[in-house]
Design a protein around this nucleic acid. Structure first.
Lengths: 223, 223
DNA sequence: TACCTCTTTTTTGTATACAATATCCCAATG
DNA sequence: CATTGGGATATTGTATACAAAAAAGAGGTA
């Protein structure tokens, strides 16, 4: 049995990341080191180190002497984020499909079922979102591209909070379900190009909807 | 006039990055915080923060309670790094070419001339490498993709030290010269697809040569 | 010699304290 | 009234000090 010792910094990274993804800390909001330190019962050192790591993930912006804020993406940036995902994820899928084992495909199908369950129970958007990421990533693992995979993971966590907002306010899930089934099916049939097209549409479609939402929210906030 | 105040951390990031790129710190070598702090005349706090940032750039690996080491890439990882660059950079070039202004093209040509000068004077590989990055990046800026651009910048700095070794040990520059000229020419003519093909070959060709070198070095080291 | 175990030393992780910078508030001036 | 300057306050940046973990060594046993 392996006991995972975590440094305070690691714990803090996870705590703050969750806060941002959940929307508990909103985009653009400043992250005061002292306040976070107080809340999480650590000194400011691990807080600072955590913020630096989150900056690397793109969830936080750090400005010298001014402090950190949760990154606020413009509509253009959201678009770029999703287009970048589309580019990298289709590439991973293209490489992965020929190598996917039946066991991996079954495993992925299981995640799909869990997503369905989560949706039926109208669980929090957090768990659905988590499963959504796992579904996508489980298809890419076989590509055996650790560096690219890690990048995609980061981009996913960045998209995540926008997806969650989308799930809450619009019915983003209804469309995703059938698309996931179709995608997995094409993977089973090893239809590489078709699968990539579906994946690309899946990502860009979500981007489009989220974009409209972001613009609307920005407009509301601007009043 | 804008005076740029830099925090100690920022200074340290640049110092250590240069050390790694120059080869002063070799791949796999441990980075002792106390030693670096002593050498750079700062406390360990800015050193730690700098190491975290360099980890995000991929130049350093950080393991809890064990410290940081300069990342050592295997042949596979070098291949992936360059293939990822090829994917992202051709995408940026594709988007950039239609938008490139004559002024930008002239600017880029200037860099090309400087590279030629640097080569003639057999300057250090550092300045050539620096110019090489600037040449490539100046073609991508017009794509107007800040996120992707930043990623490419990181990947470039990662490739950099391998390119520098390549420059020193093999004659990597000789081929690059004509390829750069050809690439810029195709950009001027707005021949998007041809330019992308040349760029891809340019990157993957370098990858291939560097790979052979890396394998040879590893084999030598393993004896 | 090989291997375990306890101790010592080195190195990293984090709290605290202080320094440097930015921000806010308010009075004085045009 | 708007604006500028300057001091008080809040916030970040960094040094120092100590705690915790890992690595290196020393001694004993089979």
């Amino acid at each position: 049995m392996v006991i995972e010792y975590k440094t305070r910094t690691q714990v803090v990274v996870e705590a703050i990341r969750e806060k941002i993804l959940k929307g508990e800390i909103k985009a653009g909001e400043p992250l005061r080191q002292a306040a976070l330190a107080d809340e999480l019962k650590v000194s400011r050192i691990p807080i600072r180190e955590a913020l630096l790591q989150l900056e690397a993930e793109g969830l936080v912006e750090f400005e010298a002497h001014k402090g950190a804020t949760a990154t606020k993406l413009s509509a253009e940036q959201v678009t770029e984020l999703f287009e970048l995902r589309a580019l990298l994820e289709t590439e991973l899928l293209r490489l992965a499909i020929p190598k996917l084992t039946d066991a991996e495909l079954d495993q992925t199908e299981l995640i799909l079922q869990q997503m369905n369950d989560a949706y039926q129970q109208s669980a929090t958007s957090g768990t659905w979102s988590e499963l959504n990421s796992r579904f996508h990533l489980s298809l890419y693992r076989a590509a055996n591209r650790p560096l690219t995979f890690e990048m995609v993971q980061n981009l996913n966590s960045n998209s995540d909070r926008y997806i969650r907002v989308h799930l809450m306010l619009a019915g983003g899930v209804t469309k995703a379900g059938p698309e996931h089934v179709q995608l997995l099916d094409l993977c089973r049939q090893r239809k590489v190009e078709q699968a990539c097209v579906v994946l690309k549409q899946h990502i860009l479609g979500a981007a489009h909807e989220i974009n409209q939402l972001v613009q609307k929210l920005d407009a509301d906030a601007g009043q």
